[in-house]
């Protein structure tokens, strides 16, 4: 079904197109089974930054208040990019490894159970 409108040919303005973010793109990042942070984050970053910078600077700026952030073993952590298994390359830009505007990145750290083993 599509939108029923008074006049034919209606189309809506796409509010969140890449061009509207002043050279940045959006990346959403969530830490699976970790609920100290109530929701995933929206990050605005340049598509040209390498993954390592996203992880160790941008993500660290929001996730590091969690006491377990520094204990994450990135070698064993799992990643999902838009729902599919993903192996990030630290030196490669986001754009070059398929992390595009409004992509969702999720990471899993099964060995960390959180505060009181309750995923906090």
């Amino acid at each position: 079904m599509s939108l029923k409108t008074l006049k034919p040919g209606y189309s809506g303005e796409v509010k969140d197109r890449l061009e509207n973010f002043n050279g940045n793109q959006l990346v959403y990042v969530g830490w699976d089974h970790q609920l100290l942070f109530c929701a995933p984050f929206t990050l605005a970053v340049s598509p040209d930054i390498p993954f390592g910078q996203l992880r160790d600077q941008v993500m660290a700026s929001v996730f590091s208040p969690h006491p377990e952030w520094t204990q994450i073993n990135w070698d064993s952590a799992g990643w999902l990019l838009d729902g599919k298994a993903f192996v990030p390359q630290l030196d490669v830009s986001l754009q070059a490894q398929g992390i595009d505007h409004k992509s969702l990145l999720r990471f899993q750290t099964p060995e960390l159970a959180g505060f009181m083993s309750a995923a906090v």
Partner: peptide
């Protein structure tokens, strides 16, 4: 710190979990 991801429909941050897996956020 940092801004949450919002639902494009209800506009609430993605804070709801899967009901059969309540420690996992729903996407």
């Amino acid at each position: 710190k940092g801004l949450p991801q919002l639902c494009n429909c209800c506009q609430i941050p993605l804070m709801f979990t899967e009901m059969d897996n309540p420690t996992q956020l729903a996407y």
